[in-house]
């Protein structure tokens, strides 16, 4: 089966600002793909071109076999995609059920309204006016509007902004369930945690370009990166006494970087036991997704667009 989304050499500029400069990526059917980047990096512009809201300057874009810039197939595309946008934009005087029923009427084969209400966790609030909902509830209603058409491909633009931790976990589970039922999901986020929890694959976008792409576990060489061992120097010892090269780090800790952490740890702990002392605060880790992300996006000159809600 062809890929759900193919983007090749996408360019878009606003006057002198080159917002997107040659972005390419592919999303397979049935996966959750996250575009990760700071504000102004070009992820919203890329999303909006895929969603058919903006025209591209050049490049090839294929969404479910259709060109989102093509007027003639716009409706066919809209019937098969679902969008959850950043702004909460729901009519305040309609009830939850009316809001969803209205949009259901726009699709040829909508999902069951009550089922969708249940999915997004708004059961029991069907008759409540939208204006009486909390911010998080409104966002869940927005999510329901993205789902009501039974989309093959779902766009989620920073979907859990404003959710409390529980609602966030529920939303993540819902997105995973949708994926497991065959829906392809493209989401943007600047939450590392969200990308790590949800995404099958991640692309980091900085300064209008994809600077890294991979699974959350392997992004930016994360899996092969050297392990970091940190601990406090035992009293009365110096860095020079250690059996391996080490660098003094923040908070009185020393850091040892190692490609063979098992061996290095053995050397260090053996050394400590022989001296009858301890390595206080001992920690072993690999660069977090956040470390990788910060490194990848650090040298970009992106200017913040609008502040994120």
């Amino acid at each position: 089966m062809a890929d759900a989304v193919v983007v090749e050499g996408l360019h878009k500029r606003y006057g002198a600002v080159r917002a997107v400069r040659g972005v390419s990526f592919t999303i397979e059917h049935g996966e959750i793909f996250a575009l990760l980047g700071r504000n102004g990096a070009g992820k919203t512009t890329t999303m909006e071109i895929l969603e058919g809201f903006r025209r591209r300057d050049s490049g090839r874009v294929d969404v479910l076999g259709l060109d989102p810039g093509e007027k003639a197939t716009e409706r066919a595309l809209r019937e098969r995609i679902g969008l959850v946008l950043q702004d909460i934009a729901v009519e305040p005087y309609l009830t939850v059920r009316e809001t969803i029923a209205r949009d259901a009427g726009y699709y040829p084969a909508p999902r069951d309204i009550d089922e969708v209400i249940g999915l997004v966790g708004l059961a029991g609030l069907e008759k409540k006016k939208v204006r009486a909902l909390s911010g998080g509830q409104k966002r869940r209603l927005d999510l329901a509007l993205g789902l009501i058409g039974g989309p093959t491909l779902l766009f989620l633009d920073e979907p859990t902004t404003g959710f409390d931790p529980n609602a966030r976990r529920d939303a993540w589970q819902l997105v995973r369930d949708l994926r497991d039922a065959g829906t392809t999901v493209l989401l943007t986020t600047h939450s590392m945690e969200e990308a790590e929890e949800l995404a099958d694959r991640v692309a980091v976008i900085a300064d209008g370009r994809i600077v890294a792409e991979g699974t959350p576990g392997t992004l930016g060489g994360r899996d092969t990166a050297r392990a970091r061992i940190r601990f406090a120097l035992p009293p009365g010892t110096t860095v020079a006494d250690l059996p391996v090269p080490a660098a003094p780090g923040e908070g009185g800790l020393v850091t040892v970087e190692s490609a063979e952490p098992t061996r290095t740890l053995h050397q260090l702990t053996g050394w400590a036991l022989r001296r009858d002392t301890v390595l206080a605060g001992l920690r072993v880790d690999r660069p977090s997704l956040e470390d990788v992300y910060m490194r990848l996006t650090d040298h970009s000159h992106s200017t913040p667009e609008r502040s994120a809600p």
């Binding site: 809201f53 019937e79 946008l85 934009a89 009519e91 949009d103 726009y106 699709y107 058409g149």
Partner: peptide
């Protein structure tokens, strides 16, 4: 201004 028109645009409603 509050994004409702964009939301309508996101549906198949012509």
């Amino acid at each position: 201004q509050n994004g409702m028109l964009k939301r309508v645009r996101a549906t198949p409603l012509p």
